[in-house]
């Protein structure tokens, strides 16, 4: 680990001041990803602003009937929060599908949004990686890419975003509240994470000097027909090969509204509202689900080892929608 300086912020404004005041500074909260990356020299901030003492650790109702998750609420406290469990079980399930109890006790909701990719090459400083070292090349495209992205990739990067929680947030159309030197703004989850393009080293549209303060969940929580389906190589403590957050609003067997977000397949949680819309007014049948799945994966591209993910993702969408329809949220 390279030496760094450290200060502790007491409120949002002082946090923003601290981050602008120091060169190559980063916020640190749970530290479950950042500290690991610092130890292996993948990230080397010169200054850390500890934000854990800022009062951003509550979950409260919003004026429009939704719920606001403070950025510093831990993943576990969020997953087991009474209102989240009751009104947004998709969020609870997605969070609990990730990491371990110990990690979720440290990891915060704001930090979850900012997780770095788990691409093998990103973690090995002896290999070329455009995300870690812009311009050095992508080892994964011609190397081992079994776990990597099939949608929204670029010739520079095929990394995936590893979060489970963010996939559920994408399906529910959450929005992210941030504060920077120029004041507050709100970023819809769909615009929060970026595709790699030719700047794969930039994961999100959050500016370096902005801090996430909270996540707003809209009033509609799809608490009846939902599922978070996570496919992975072992039963726990593994990142998704493919995951699907699916939510349905039904009138009998007729679909009024469908939401589908995919994890493990792209540089961001993957949504395609125009494909979801195909289900509107349709019957909840396997055939209709498969059609949407085909539409969702249109344009998907495999890189050899990960070709199978295209078909797997389609099947996962079908299964997730069936589970949501059958109220098998916890499957």
């Amino acid at each position: 680990m390279r030496p760094f300086t450290y200060t502790r912020a007491t409120d949002v404004n002082s946090a923003v001041q601290e981050i602008t005041r120091h060169e190559k500074a980063k916020f640190v909260a749970g530290g479950t990803n950042l500290l690991d990356l610092m130890k292996i020299d993948v990230m080397a901030p010169q200054h850390l602003v500890d934000i854990t003492r800022i009062a951003l650790n509550t979950i409260e109702a919003t004026a429009d009937g939704g719920l606001r998750l403070g950025a510093l609420v831990t993943n576990n406290d969020t997953a087991y929060h009474e209102q989240v469990e009751k009104r947004y079980p998709l969020i609870s399930h997605a969070i609990l599908a990730g990491a371990t109890g110990q990690l979720r006790n440290m990891a915060t909701d704001g930090g979850n949004l900012l997780q770095r990719t788990r691409c093998y090459y990103f973690y090995d400083t002896q290999t070329p990686c455009n995300k870690r070292e812009p311009g050095s090349g992508c080892s994964a495209i011609k190397g081992y890419n079994r776990d990597l992205a099939i949608l929204g990739t670029s010739e520079h990067c095929i990394a995936t975003h590893p979060s489970d929680m963010c996939v559920a947030l994408a399906a529910l159309e959450a929005s992210i509240n941030v504060t920077g030197p120029k004041g507050e703004r709100t970023i819809p989850i769909a615009d929060f994470h970026r595709l790699p393009g030719d700047t794969p080293h930039i994961d999100t549209n959050l500016q370096e000097d902005e801090i996430i303060t909270s996540i707003d969940l809209p009033a509609k929580g799809f608490a009846e027909h939902y599922t978070y389906l996570k496919l992975r190589d072992r039963a726990s403590y593994a990142f998704a090969i493919v995951s699907v957050a699916a939510a349905l609003d039904l009138d009998g067997d007729t679909i009024k509204e469908a939401r589908i977000a995919l994890g493990g397949v792209a540089h961001k949680p993957w949504r395609k509202p125009e494909a979801e819309a195909m289900l509107q007014g349709q019957q909840a049948t396997r055939e209709n689900f498969r059609k949407v799945a085909e539409a969702y994966l249109e344009g998907a591209k495999g890189y050899g080892d990960n070709d199978y993910k295209i078909e797997l993702a389609k099947r996962a969408i079908v299964r997730a929608l069936e589970q949501a329809f059958n109220k098998e949220g916890a499957a």
């Binding site: 973690y123 090995d124 081992y144 039963a235």
Partner: peptide
Amino acid sequence: INHDLDKYHVPVNAD
């Protein structure tokens, strides 16, 4: 290339 316990899998309790 998968030289850590995140990427090199052994069974966990849940398996």
